[in-house]
Amino acid sequence: MRIKEIIVVEGRDDTAKIKSAVDADTIETNGSAIGEEVIKRIRLAQQTRGVIIFTDPDFPGEKIRKTVAEAVPGCKHAFLPKHLAIPKNNRGIGVEHASVESIRESLSSVHEEMEDPVLEITTEELIEDGLIGSAVSRKRRERLGDRLNIGYTNGKQLQKRLQMFQITKSEYKQAMKAVMQEEQNE
């Protein structure tokens, strides 16, 4: 599988894992303190081939994703569910711990940001579905993010991410139905 876009990752281990799964080029941020030189390379990559941001499913990874997306508009996003990024010894979390199949799956479900998103899913719906303000909200948001391949986000950011990645009301409802069925089967 050849990826045309350049994939932005956090470090060398992520690059090695990506290259073991797909034929792709990467740019490494080397942590969340992204320098201007790295941003310049990402901007050039976006202009010439396009960019996919593929960071770890943790706080530093989300910070890097946000920093790059703000500095370089129009990037695509690939998300790895948290449970697929944890090694067997439970030490650390990251893209480098994921299976080749999980990497390929994440890269085949890339989302593109929309510049002027249309509000389809209201805050009231998120509250009604228990994604904001309930005891099970965090777990439901994790499951929803996995189902929609948009990653985990907190309650305040969920609506923005649904809009940003053009998740339709029907996609949302279908994913929520699956999340609720999962809960019932536990």
Rank of each mutant, 00 (worst) to 15 (best):
M180I: 12
K17R: 15
Q174K: 15
K139Q: 11
H111N: 10
I167Q: 03
S106Q: 08
M1T: 02
D146H: 11
T122H: 10
P60K: 05
T122M: 06
D25C: 10
M176P: 10
V51D: 06
D129T: 05
H77R: 03
V38D: 09
A85N: 10
L148T: 00
D56C: 08
N90I: 05
P117G: 07
S102F: 02
G145C: 02
E183A: 14
Q157Y: 11
S137K: 11
H77C: 10
F54C: 05
V100E: 15
C75V: 15
Y172M: 00
G151W: 02
A98L: 04
V136A: 13
F59H: 08
K19E: 12
I52G: 00
V95Y: 04
G11Y: 05
D23F: 13
R91Q: 14
Q159I: 01
V136W: 05
S134N: 05
I39Y: 11
I42F: 13
G74R: 01
S102A: 15
T153W: 00
I121Y: 04
L44F: 03
L148E: 04
H97T: 03
G31V: 08
P117R: 05
K17A: 10
V110M: 06
L107H: 12
N30D: 09
G74H: 06
G35Y: 03
A78Y: 10
E142W: 11
T48M: 04
F54S: 02
D129E: 12
D116V: 04
A135G: 09
G92M: 04
S134C: 12
T153E: 09
S32R: 02
S32D: 07
